[in-house]
Write a protein that binds this DNA or RNA. Structure first.
Length: 602
RNA sequence: GGGGACGUAGUGUAGUUGGUUAACAUGCGACCCUGUCAAGGUCGAGAUCGCGAGUUCGAGUCUCGUCGUCCCCGCCA
């Protein structure tokens, strides 16, 4: 028997008991005649004390030798001993088990360990590449383990909740078909059909729609998704979605389920959610916050000063107005203390984001100090100050450009300033639905309309006739029945009402410039399925990794994934991706064009 | 594809205007020590300064390239 108790769960209630624990040596303190060492397992840490007089005489030499030479950090030990109360002076209030200790009676070394590459307790301060290479050690850190314990508990709560709501857990394929639209696919070559490729799913989108058509009514899955795009602090090439789809559902049904689910399950993280979650249309989010995923935990909203300058003589503004642009701005409370250097870096930032410039104005002692004063009339400045409700010491930042661009630039600056000026209250959690997204956006690269959400999203239209004859501008005005849920300015998830009508789906493909043949080839199975009694359905997917990251207030998605990839999408632990043998390539009918170093594996 | 930061004993860092033997902490090894919990003390080992070129009498330090890690833009339906 390896244990009667877990280390972290031994309490004063166990005093007097003879127990057995197994785990890792966390640290040791050798005082010569008495030796202390801490034992660690998944539940926590407990102190073991070795005293010569407590050991049976015939075992003493053997055990003392083990203690002196074989109790090293990260050794795996089985300890039997007696739980005793610590004397008042030796209580350690920092430890959960600090009121007791275990007097060692016997010990067995289950395994030895090389000295750990880094101190397990201090692993959070070690360079990340080292931690990733020795991830199995990093994950021994209790703080890391806590993340995965919470993650597991959260999933357990979600399972309970959704099961109660009559959702069925169904798994969908990982080896599937490459689809156009969306992110780059990860491809998997087929051996039995040389020259053919599977793709790893970017999401189970089409399969879950097919499940609705099959009559499963409500589906969910903790689904792995794969997207071959560049990484960020909150993006990994493979990630997990809490994926759901409901038949006979509209927006309100989705909102209701998700809101109740989050309210219930976020208690795992000690987070309370006030229901209902507030809602913003896409247009409102953009015009007030310059983002389709605004952080609404602080103000600094965008104001539109266009009307003030309709008759301006300022050339820059005139030009913008003639091109139907907008003059937008934000007010930074007490921002007049910004130095010239700080303002210059704001201007630089705006330019990197695509602005032609950034105008600023400091309102100090009743004066508006700004490059703008040279060009604008006094009435215009007064109106500007009034619009922004400027108070002494405030800073106004103005970007004039095409509306969408000006909004985005100000939205980004707003977010960065909030971080810099620490305007975001810590430990605050803010939720928001954003809906009424545009159906399409124009892709300069492909010179055509592309879906903002995905091509299976229901347009928000009463009448689907005549769609083809609309101008590009009119098409861009079409809204879709899609929605995102935002947490603290981060997109937590999104979904939509799906198209269940074959003819509408065909029309949408046409608008996206997907030819009948291509639609048939890529999505024929869906079109076919839609023609066999597809029920109205809708769904949503939440990014599980991001969700855990936000709830545990971590900065990187890597911290919530047991074995994450680096920014270049390699795994430092396993050294993936890697070269494969010539035999493997031959079986797949694949030849590597460029010269590659095959030293690693051949 | 682009912009930025970083790379020095196992780990975390310092290293001046380029100048002899690359420093500190921690960890590691040996020893001392009966109440520590970041234990303490004594002694010791441990680095071709990411890699490659260049400038120079001389490079951890300057230049270029390259590799790796991180942050951001593009990209991510």
């Amino acid at each position: 028997m390896y244990r009667t108790n877990y280390c972290g769960e031994i309490t004063e209630k166990n005093i007097g008991e003879n127990i057995i624990i197994s785990g890792w040596v966390n640290s040791r303190r050798d005082h010569g005649g008495v030796v202390f060492f801490d034992m660690r397992d998944i539940t926590g840490i407990v102190q073991v004390v070795f005293r010569i007089e407590e050991i049976e005489k015939d075992k003493l030499n053997f055990i003392e030798d083990l203690i002196k030479h074989n109790v090293k950090p990260e050794f795996v030990l089985k300890i039997s001993g007696k739980v005793v109360k610590r004397s008042e002076e030796s209580i350690n209030p920092k430890m959960k088990t600090g009121k007791i200790e275990i007097v060692l009676k016997n010990l067995e070394v289950l395994n030895t360990s090389k000295p750990p590459v880094f101190d397990i307790e201090n692993s959070q301060n070690v360079a990340e590449d080292t931690r990733l290479k020795y991830r199995f050690l990093d994950l021994r850190n209790p703080k890391m383990q806590e993340i995965f314990i919470k993650r597991s508990l959260f999933i357990e709560e979600v399972n309970k909740f959704l099961s109660n709501e009559r959702f069925l857990y169904v798994e969908t394929p990982i080896l599937t078909k490459s689809t156009p639209e969306g992110a780059r696919d990860y491809l998997v070559p087929s051996r039995v059909q040389n020259g053919m490729f599977y793709a790893l799913p970017q999401s189970p989108q089409l399969f879950k729609q097919l499940l609705m058509i099959s009559g499963f009514d409500r589906y969910y899955q903790i689904a792995k998704c794969f997207r071959d795009e560049d990484l960020r602090a909150d993006r990994q090439p493979e990630f997990t979605q809490l994926d759901m789809e409901l038949s006979f559902a509209i927006e309100e049904d989705i909102f209701d389920i998700i809101e109740r689910m989050l309210a219930k399950t976020f208690s795992i993280f000690g987070i309370n959610i006030n229901l209902p979650i507030k809602r913003l249309t896409y247009d409102e989010a953009m015009s007030r916050f310059g983002s389709d995923k605004p952080d609404t935990r602080f103000g600094m909203e965008i104001s539109d000063a266009t009307n003030i300058f309709l008759n301006t003589e300022f050339k820059v503004f005139r030009q913008i107005l003639e091109n139907k642009g907008k003059i937008l701005g934000i007010k930074v409370d007490k921002g007049s203390s910004f130095s010239r250097k700080e303002l210059d870096s704001l201007i630089e930032e705006a330019k990197i984001l695509g602005a032609k410039g950034l105008l600023y104005g400091k309102y100090i002692n009743g004066n508006f100090e700004s490059p703008l004063t040279k060009f604008a009339k006094k009435e215009e400045i007064d109106a500007l100050l009034k619009l922004f409700k400027a108070e002494d010491g405030d800073l106004i930042l103005i970007v004039s450009d095409k509306e969408e661009l000006a909004q985005k630039i100000l939205g980004t600056i707003r977010g960065n300033l909030a971080k810099k000026l620490k305007l975001i209250p810590p430990n605050s959690f803010d939720f928001l639905w954003v809906y009424d997204f545009p159906m399409f956006e124009y892709s300069e690269e492909e010179n055509r309309l592309v879906s903002k959400h995905h091509p299976f999203t229901m347009p928000s239209l009463e009448n689907f006739d005549n769609l083809e004859n609309l101008s590009i501008e009119e098409k861009l005005k079409i809204k879709s029945r899609s929605y995102d849920i935002i947490m603290n300015g981060v997109e937590l998830g999104g979904g939509s009402i799906r198209i269940h009508d074959l003819n509408i789906q065909k029309k949408v493909f046409k608008l996206l410039n997907i030819k009948d043949e291509e639609a048939e080839e890529k999505f024929g199975f869906l079109l076919e399925a839609l023609s066999y009694g597809a029920p109205p359905h809708a769904g949503i997917a939440l990014g599980l990794d991001r969700l855990i990251m936000l709830c545990m207030e971590l900065d990187s998605i890597r911290d919530v994934i047991a074995f994450p990839k680096t920014q270049k999408a390699s795994c430092l632990l396993t050294d993936a991706p890697n070269v494969v043998s010539k035999v493997q390539l031959r079986d797949l009918g694949i030849q590597i064009k460029e010269k590659i170093n095959f030293d690693k594996k051949d």
